[in-house]
């Protein structure tokens, strides 16, 4: 068994105006082949107008074990949301 080709993550922009979104991964010998494979694997029904492929090994991801340390500090900062502020109903356009 020869070694697997490089693993790429695939991101698709479904239509112009929207962001690219992760859809899955695939193997390819190089970046160009990764784009071609992504076309065949993930856009057989016109699911996209643009494709990004990124080597999986180039993605730096946060560690789920550290999720609390990363995200919990935002939890008690409800004043960052507009609904935190009580405004009398008579006040318009606010």
């Amino acid at each position: 068994m020869t070694e697997d080709w490089v693993l790429y993550e695939v991101f698709i922009r479904s239509r112009s105006g929207l962001e690219h979104k992760h859809v899955g991964s695939l193997h390819a010998a190089d970046a160009r082949m990764a784009l071609e494979h992504a076309r065949d694997t993930y856009t057989r029904r016109q699911e996209g107008v643009s494709i990004w492929v990124v080597r999986s090994s180039d993605i730096v991801a946060s560690d789920p074990q550290e999720a609390e340390a990363l995200f919990d500090p935002a939890r008690d900062k409800v004043y960052r949301h507009p609904t935190f502020y009580a405004i009398p109903e008579d006040v318009k356009n606010l």
Partner: peptide
């Protein structure tokens, strides 16, 4: 062609669990 694509989606999903595509094939 779809069936081939479905196989690819699933191999990708399996690979996230730490097995390589080469091993599976």
């Amino acid at each position: 062609q779809d069936e081939g694509g479905h196989g690819m989606y699933l191999y990708s999903a399996a690979e996230t669990l730490g097995v390589s595509r080469g091993q599976l094939i």
